[in-house]
Amino acid sequence: MVKSKQHHSRIAAIRNDSSLKIAFISGLLLLSSCSSDNNKKLEAPKNADAETLYNYGIDALHSGHYKLAAGEFELLQQNYPYSGFTGNAELMEGYAYYLQGEYALSVQQLERYLQLHPTSPDAAYAFYLRALCYYEQIADVQRDQQGTVEAMDALEEVITRFPQTAYARDAQLKIDLCRDHLAGKEMLVGRYYQQQRNYEASLTRYQRVIQDFQTTNHVPEALERIVEVDMDLGLKDDARQTAAVLGYNYPDSQWYRYAYNKLRDHHLLSDNLKQPKNTSSKPRGFFSRVWHSIF
């Protein structure tokens, strides 16, 4: 369970990162000529023109009144559908919903914006913000992970459409986190099946982590759990082989020490199992090549 707690703390740290509370394109924010007036009312006057509505919406965003900001941008779109401020207001309304945590409304608004302005210079940002809406809704590993899959799909779309942008680079980092999250879910379920002595089901989960999530931090534990299952099933040679893969790729991992000690205690050590090291080093070789050569 230590692995799971570490995973949860990593999720919390990244989701609280300031990059998620992204500031919008500075050019749009600077359109406001009224935002320096701190004494005016936040709500725009009746019959305000498009620029005034937009500026009031920006001021509401700056002051943290996101619901009011969304209302100002919506009113602008209704009253001035052909204004030069309308496109920006559509996008900013989606941003205001995002800051409120109204992710479904934000996605709906952003998709509407992208339908109306598919070639906009701000389309990359709109796709990225849409992906963040899904990303913010990633559930704990104990719950259904459909939201994680949707977040990955949306983030992948950002990379596919805008590969050379900063949005794509950040999306890749978040995809890595999503993959780690999905691997954590597989490990949680695998441990449950193992505790219930449903070894076939647990092996399926652990093997999926190894084959589909090789770049995550859950792989060493998955290998060690397979050693445990093999030993419980009396598959001594399989246990040794899996421990050899673990020791080759992660010689300094605590999970290799666990596997090595268990095999030693049952007098199952073989010549290709080296005693765990005490110093830190990176995994050697190509893990997938070693894994597939044995299994």
Rank of each mutant, 00 (worst) to 15 (best):
226 I>F: 00
192 Y>R: 13
207 Q>S: 11
133 C>R: 03
146 Q>H: 13
263 L>W: 09
246 L>N: 09
181 H>T: 15
161 R>K: 09
168 A>P: 07
213 F>R: 08
212 D>G: 06
135 Y>M: 03
240 R>M: 04
156 E>L: 03
167 Y>S: 02
155 L>S: 01
131 A>E: 05
206 Y>S: 12
136 E>G: 07
210 I>Q: 10
183 A>G: 04
207 Q>C: 07
186 E>Q: 13
156 E>M: 02
249 N>W: 12
224 E>W: 10
232 D>R: 01
175 I>V: 12
266 H>C: 00
131 A>D: 02
258 Y>N: 11
177 L>T: 09
162 F>Q: 05
145 Q>C: 12
221 E>Q: 10
199 Y>L: 08
223 L>Y: 07
254 Q>V: 11
164 Q>A: 05
151 A>G: 04
224 E>R: 10
157 E>N: 09
265 D>N: 08
250 Y>C: 02
147 G>S: 14
160 T>L: 05
222 A>F: 01
152 M>K: 15
175 I>D: 07
186 E>T: 00
156 E>R: 05
230 D>G: 07
217 N>G: 11
167 Y>R: 00
249 N>E: 07
194 Q>W: 10
183 A>S: 13
126 A>E: 03
233 L>G: 11
251 P>Q: 06
166 A>C: 05
176 D>C: 04
166 A>M: 10
215 T>L: 12
163 P>H: 07
200 E>D: 15
240 R>A: 14
242 T>D: 07
208 R>V: 09
172 Q>K: 06
195 Q>I: 08
246 L>F: 05
230 D>T: 04
153 D>Y: 08
205 R>D: 09
225 R>Q: 14
254 Q>N: 14
221 E>R: 04
149 V>A: 10
180 D>E: 15
209 V>F: 00
259 A>V: 06
140 D>I: 04
186 E>I: 04
